[in-house]
Design a binder for these strands. Structure first.
Lengths: 208, 208
DNA sequence: CCCATACGGTACTAGACAGTCTAGTTTTTG
DNA sequence: CAAAAACTAGACTGTCTAGTACCGTATGGG
């Protein structure tokens, strides 16, 4: 998790990162109330006092790990845009790659865990839920709209209403699979199902 | 909540219902860990001792309220099927009513609260999450497939793959709105947005 | 009408948890 | 190299919580 082998990090910075990483793993797996500060300190191999040196209180630590995790949704979006441009084949193949990248990104364990956490704590931390929604679903659909615009410029037969098309594309591709991931945390969605959903998403927008 | 004015319920039965109702409201709003047994007893206007007379422990009570709430998803499904049959107009109008019923059902506050709860506790109570998924999303898509079959028999131009069509229909209609409800618990999705989603869902399946 | 059963209220046990404090050690830095 | 700052370990406070015990009162079937 961002532990990028920096050559001369100070001890304090290393501890800060350790605490964030440990808290991240615990909060994502056990939720806010299900995780204790003692657990965090132990998992980070750090004294409790040090935890409170770096973060004012539990809520502060929680906000920090969510703020730290949310940007990773941006990486998924970037992957989606890259998937369209890369590779061979016509618009249909390119859109299928796009859908597949979206699906694989959305089903990453950290992504689904963060989503579950944001939903679970939406009442207690509405600002975090809103931030997640903006960085995740919202920019995701925006990116897809951009890709569809490219495809239409390239001559693909797409509807005029690209906002609706992007919405349809995204939800046909990922919503059912995200449901599976949220309700069955331990299960992995098989490759064949992902491919089928990607095809369905392309089919939905490629006829107008 | 099932409090149907039965003429001569015994005191014990009344208390049982009071506890269920109070616990239901609290768990749905505050989650499992966020709700204490003292709170439940106070809200139900019952002594704590009585709570433990009716339910072995907190987990038992929680399972009871989820088991009590989940069947209500079935009522939503029934409403969806009824919406197709009722009213005037051709297949397109009927499908639009179907989508609208699905949307309104999914956005009921109790429905979204239960969904949030099932997702939040999916790791701790995987069996409850699975039961919810079966009673909610799964039977919902099944019901829509039935409606689409009816529509096709009536001459509507639908794809041959009705399972995929039902999946697409359901997710284009409700998934985006459910996201909104989950991430922004206090907001209400306006009527115009619901209507637009219903139209989009019909448009997606009515061209094959 | 009577007795088992359920109730209310409240006090209690036992443990978890957030956050503080102390006292001594290590790291950073000027 | 010395002072400042960050670290460790663990005890400690106050609060909350699940679940139990006690005891006196109300309910309701036989």
């Amino acid at each position: 998790m961002g532990v990028t082998l920096e050559r001369q990090r100070t001890l304090s910075e290393r501890k800060h990162g350790d605490i964030l990483a440990a808290a991240s793993a615990l909060f994502l797996r056990q939720g806010y109330r299900g995780t204790s500060m003692d657990e965090v300190a132990t998992a980070a191999k750090v004294s409790k006092q040090t935890v409170y040196k770096h973060f004012a209180d539990k809520e502060d630590l929680f906000r920090a790990i969510v703020a730290d995790s949310t940007p990773r949704s941006g990486a998924i979006v970037a992957g989606v845009e890259a998937a369209y441009a890369s590779g061979a084949g016509g618009a249909e193949r390119a859109l299928e790659r796009t859908a597949r990248a979206l699906i694989d990104g959305a089903l990453l364990p950290e992504a689904t865990a963060l989503r579950r956490l944001a939903i679970a704590e939406a009442e207690q931390f509405p600002d975090l839920a809103a931030a997640y929604y903006g960085a995740g679903p919202l920019t995701g659909v925006g990116a897809i709209m951009g890709v569809l615009a490219q495809a239409r410029d390239g001559g693909a037969p797409l509807p005029t209403d690209l906002a609706t098309a992007a919405h349809d594309f995204a939800h046909v591709a990922v919503s059912g699979l995200i449901d599976l991931a949220l309700f069955f945390p331990s299960q992995v969605v098989p490759d064949a199902v992902r491919a089928e959903r990607a095809r369905a998403a392309v089919a939905v927008v490629l006829r107008a």
